[in-house]
Amino acid sequence: MEHTTVIHAEGLTRHFGDTIAVDRISFDVQAGEVFGFLGHNGAGKTTTIRVLNGVLDATAGKVEVLGLSPNAQGPALRRRTGVLTETPSLDDRLTARDNLRIYANLYDVPQDQVQSRVDEMLALFELSERADDKVGEFSKGMRQRLALARALIHQPELLFLDEPTSGLDPVASKQVRDLIDRLSEEGRTIFLCTHNLTEAQRLCDRVAVLEEGQIIALGNPRELGDQMGISLPLEIEVAADQINAACELLSSIEHATDVRARGSVINVSGLHRTDIPLAIERLVSTNIAIFQVTPGEASLESVYLALHRDEEAA
């Protein structure tokens, strides 16, 4: 299984009338990899999933998924893939159990295993107690878990996740992220679309950054961030009487754009991840007592900014 290419896309393009939703993208995804597709709303993520799963025809380009052509061998391909759609796409009028049972049947789970597989999924996603309630009454987080359960009911080799945590509160998001980690540990290949940079960094082996239908960067998310010099906000708590000295020191560090003190907490923005060790070292060497350092989340904007800065420089 090592280094088997699960997804191969070459010049993949999709137009909707005059809109170019996906513009000549090329990439490969290897078996067992968590591959991130990072981009704002309208970047072309959902369209890409649809084309890869043979649900939407490509306008141009070559695509092969699990060795099959999505366009010509869609049904055979879709038997082996699972999809978490952007909106959970559940039937609100049915119970959680019925929603799962229907898909177990559609995906040809052996008849005598349907019942046990459904129960197993309900338990895994902590929905057993609400199994016989109508989905219309479920919270957003519960729906998302149920939709994930449904995507996994036939134990697919390849999983497409379209913004799995968008709109979820932090607790529900964490639950979903932990589940994705677990699925990845089981060896499934995961194609994860997100507009959340931190999520991509935390979950993905590699990420493609998508803008207006084009891949503008591709690589290991940490390295990519470090190379591009993505800035992230930093929060440092120091001794209250040393606050002015600390601010002065931090302002002198390269990249630091804005240094603000409130009480004993300093907020620094503009720093790159690679600047953090230097900042701490300087504070420590001037004998400033540090109580807490909290890096914030780098925003997707900073990725685009960094990428465009590179473009201009080039």
Binding site: N53, V55, G74, P75, A76, R78, R79, T81, V83, T85, T87, P88, S89, L90, D91, D92, Y103, L106, Y107, D108, A147, R150
Partner: peptide, 14 residues
Amino acid sequence: ERKPLEALLHSPLT
């Protein structure tokens, strides 16, 4: 309109 169609379209049926 209600959305459950999308998941159905991702199913293996022709």
